[in-house]
């Protein structure tokens, strides 16, 4: 089968049981995506498939033939960090770092969902006006951080949202 990962085409012979996460880590050497729970409960394995965030531990690689996959390794642009990566550094949005690649990929997908006007469970009045801490916490609830670095993760994501909207946050 063929896997398109971070703009490169890989020809792979995989057991049907191989998840996308295991294909990335064990077959392509892309170990940025992390295996936390391996049951879709922690978000450490989050990657972007056709631009949308998913749990790669629950996706069978064989189902993703020909689909565009983006991992943490593919977010930077010619060595320049993605704005979400830079914001996590600036805000110290991590401690041990294990959940960080998943947090960052999830945030990239989430910010795009917000730009498309998708509501969340805490959105009132139908249309979300702007991201605030409550919206970020709800929309990022699929990414757990056992170090509890949320106090810096939320501001890091809000920095990116504010910069994109032309606002400055304190």
């Amino acid at each position: 089968m063929q896997l398109h990962v971070n703009g490169r085409l890989h020809e792979l012979a995989l057991d049907n049981r191989t998840t996308l996460l295991d294909a990335l880590r064990e077959h392509l050497g892309l170990t940025g995506s992390k295996k936390g729970c391996d049951h879709g409960q922690c978000g450490a394995c989050t990657v972007l498939v056709d631009g949308r965030r998913i749990n790669s531990c629950l996706a069978l690689a064989v189902t993703l033939d020909g689909v565009e996959i983006r991992t943490i390794e593919g977010l930077s642009d010619d060595g320049a960090l993605h704005p979400v990566q830079q914001a996590f550094l600036d805000r110290d949005g991590f401690q041990c770092g294990y959940c960080t690649p998943g947090q960052i990929c999830s945030a990239v997908g989430m910010l795009d969902e917000f730009d498309q006007g998708w509501p969340s469970a805490v959105t009132t009045g139908g249309q979300p006006a702007a991201l605030d801490a409550g919206e970020v916490r709800e929309r990022m609830s699929g990414n757990l951080c056992r170090c509890g670095a949320y106090m810096n993760i939320v501001p890091a994501i809000l920095d990116v949202a504010d910069a994109a909207a032309g606002r400055s946050s304190a």
């Binding site: 879709g40 989050t46 965030r53 998913i54 749990n55 629950l58 999830s106």
Partner: peptide, 8 residues
């Protein structure tokens, strides 16, 4: 669920 799971 979560944003990731709802996308799947």
């Amino acid at each position: 669920a979560s944003g990731q799971l709802r996308n799947m």
